[in-house]
Design a protein around this nucleic acid. Structure first.
Lengths: 226, 226
DNA sequence: TCCGGCCGTTCGGATTCCGTGAGGACAGCG
DNA sequence: CGCTGTCCTCACGGAATCCGAACGGCCGGA
């Protein structure tokens, strides 16, 4: 049973990690919302514990992002005791809400209750790199949890690259797959679409970290390890 | 959605009955543990709310009895705040634990969270988005509780989209499924039906929030969190 | 230092694609 | 025969997309 902890309090994370590990859970942790979403896509945890009021992406936004593609139980652990926060979190898709400070045995009991309800994972073919998630089955691209809109041509290029993660894709292979032209006359539009993809998906489009170009050869998508 | 309330405080039961009914729940109530178990066997509620410390059968015993034959979510509503009671209840099979006095909106939110699990787990093919509910088994569509009349063709399109919530559906897939035509010549009627569906289901048909179109590719139904 | 190949990026016109209103064809029904 | 509901065609305005052209930066070789 793998648990993802999203909390910006390193001391609390450390204590939880020890306790949960002692009870047989595998623990992964992220210090902010955006990292939590990316880590969830990569690790596919069975249960998610999320704090409200994290940097970079609020807890509620994390819940909404996760609910876009997973049904794993989500439990909110927050210092906020108001019912408004509880209602908002639960309606966003959370399954439980615990207020700090909490009794550790109560939290463990709630985790056990949620574990009972865990259903089998969906096994969707997804490719992730950085904070980007590419879902090849639903043709959906999200970045830090938010949907990114791609034009048909942009999607075709990204799809082709995502189906060959890590390996070099020659320019003519891309041109043939997307425009079907045998005769390749690079009039420059491939460069144009790569530019737009980087603008939409890279955090620093000028220095791409994942959509790499191999001079004279083609392009390469550097994906995260599955 | 049917809720069974097991509590020996008639005043609280009365208040809950009114509030829950106002939010669309069907309510049945039992004043003690033994009656609650009997009533559950007869009524088959979707969710059970149980108090600890009832006459004739304690709350934990009620939980254990119910868990013998049903997986319906059980939520404990109790005045006892100690973690020992929480742990005991949750480990007996309860799904949630709320302490009295409680905020009614928080309780409602937790009920909604449990309802989601019920519909998701029971495999009942129901898709919701905004104020619209699409029931694939009974072929009915309701909006804010009121039935919406769809023509056969409109229903076929919505059904196809609802069977692939969140996923992009290409125009040719829709045309092939609904008109069976191999050769696709979009003469424009698909666009017309999408327009009518939006008029009937979207609150702002001009700016659709759920029946989205991906230019050049197809359509996508953005459903609520499961 | 100059030069030419290669690449990324911006701009804008041409083209395709989409939403929507109006209305005809057709079948079922009283 | 008129009415009603549904399916479909057509046409138009607006939005999204494509792609040609051009400019600037980088870099290795002469």
């Amino acid at each position: 049973m793998k648990v993802l902890i999203a909390d910006d309090d390193p001391q609390l994370v450390r204590a939880l990690r020890i306790t949960l590990a002692a009870h047989g859970y595998e623990v992964v942790a992220a210090p902010d919302g955006a990292a939590a979403v990316a880590l969830a896509a990569k690790e596919h945890p069975d249960i998610v514990m999320v704090d409200l009021g994290m940097p970079r992406l609020d807890g509620v936004q994390v819940i909404e992002a996760l609910r876009g593609w997973t049904t794993a139980p989500i439990i909110v652990v927050s210092g906020r005791t108001g019912s408004a926060d509880k209602v908002e979190s639960l309606d966003a898709g959370a399954d439980d809400y615990v207020t700090k400070p909490f009794q550790i045995d109560e939290l463990l009991a709630r985790l056990r209750a949620l574990s009972r309800r865990v259903t089998a994972a969906s096994g969707v073919p997804v490719v992730t790199f950085g904070d980007v998630v590419v879902d090849l089955s639903t043709k959906t691209v999200t970045r830090s949890g938010e949907r990114v809109h791609l034009t048909p041509t942009e999607w075709k290029i990204l799809e082709f690259l995502a189906r060959n993660p890590g390996s070099l894709v020659t320019r003519q292979a891309l041109l043939k797959d997307i425009w079907g032209t045998e005769q390749v006359a690079d009039t420059g539009y491939l460069r144009l679409y790569m530019s737009q993809l980087r603008k939409k998906l890279e955090s620093d489009p000028g220095n791409p970290a994942h959509l790499l170009t191999e001079s004279g050869m083609g392009y390469r998508l550097l994906a995260d390890a599955a």
